[in-house]
């Protein structure tokens, strides 16, 4: 009799397999991507000096040489390290503060009502505009960039956390109240896990902004970091150097994004597996 209920076998460990048309085409997708890169770089290399002055667009071979040189001299690590530290510290501080503040306001509607106009005002402000002020306050070193990145990340994570706590389904809360759950238990067992999706969305989208905060700060005033590298290269009309630094930035931004995506997959496992089931 109980067979009637067994609708679908549960796949506990593996993510659902991708549709077969996708799997079949995987190699060709990869081939296309490689082709785009090769063709793009070749065109660039060809055009440089022939169609457009090398001065404006440099050329892939020069950029590569620049990268190799930075690696050999060790310059790359110094600057990369500084930018990464600023970004990660800004991200961590901003995310922690954003989550805490978002929860505090989400769980305390009265406080939220009082603070609402101030939050909107700060949220609307382009945070990058605060960079000169922070440099004035915290100097040209690491601190001013960390503060800027923190500030940018904070608002994104805060806003998502706050929205997440408000989006909790009332019925879930009611069922637990009837079971005798205390306020604290409801927060821990319903509101927090439910808001986690939103918190992750906020964190994920704030990673590139943490990097922006750090790099913009570096470009304004500093003597280290990828932003400084870009600024310095541009100051010497060295477009190859600018592109090389941009390339490194792109790599670390993608890496950070991937890292967060993976951790989200682990923490929100229950959600991943729900696809296609009803």
């Amino acid at each position: 009799m109980s067979e009637a209920f067994v609708a679908l076998p549960a796949t506990n460990d593996e993510a659902p397999p991708s549709p077969s048309f996708f799997r079949g085409g995987w190699v060709s997708i990869l081939a296309w991507r490689v082709a785009i890169i090769v063709v793009g770089l070749s065109l660039w290399q060809y055009a440089s000096g022939r169609l457009i002055k090398t001065f404006w667009i440099s050329r892939p071979s020069d950029i590569w040489q620049q990268l190799v040189e930075w690696v050999v001299t060790g310059d790359l690590w110094i600057h990369l390290q500084v930018t990464l530290i600023e970004t990660v510290m800004g991200f961590v501080f901003g995310a922690v503060a954003g989550i805490l503040f978002g929860l505090a306001l989400g769980l305390n509607r009265r406080l939220a009502a009082v603070l609402d106009p101030f939050i909107v005002a700060f949220y609307s402000l382009p945070k990058i505009a605060l960079a000169p002020l922070f440099i004035l306050w915290f100097g040209v070193g690491l601190a001013s960039k960390v503060v800027l990145a923190t500030f940018v990340v904070f608002f994104l994570v805060f806003y998502n956390t706050y929205a997440g706590t408000l989006a909790v389904e009332a019925e879930l809360v009611d069922v637990l109240r009837l079971m005798g759950a205390s306020r604290g238990q409801i927060v821990r067992k319903v509101i927090l896990p439910s808001a986690l999706i939103w918190i992750f969305t906020g964190m994920k989208s704030s990673v590139p902004y943490a990097l922006i905060g750090a790099v913009v700060g570096e470009m304004m005033a500093s003597n280290k970091g990828l932003g400084y590298l870009i600024q310095a290269a541009a100051g010497q009309y060295d477009t190859g150097g600018v592109f090389a630094a941009l390339f490194v930035l792109m790599i670390i931004a993608t890496g950070l994004h991937e890292l967060l995506k993976q951790s989200e997959r682990v923490m929100l496992r229950w959600r991943e597996e729900g696809h296609g089931r009803n």
């Binding site: 109980s2 209920f5 679908l8 549960a10 506990n12 959600r271 597996e273």
Partner: peptide, 21 residues
């Protein structure tokens, strides 16, 4: 409820009847 074997499953993995149970 005849749900042995599904202890570690998540609700989204179950059919409507199983979720009710």
């Amino acid at each position: 409820m005849g749900l042995i074997g599904f202890e570690k499953s998540y609700p989204a993995q179950l059919s409507g009847g199983m979720r009710r149970r």
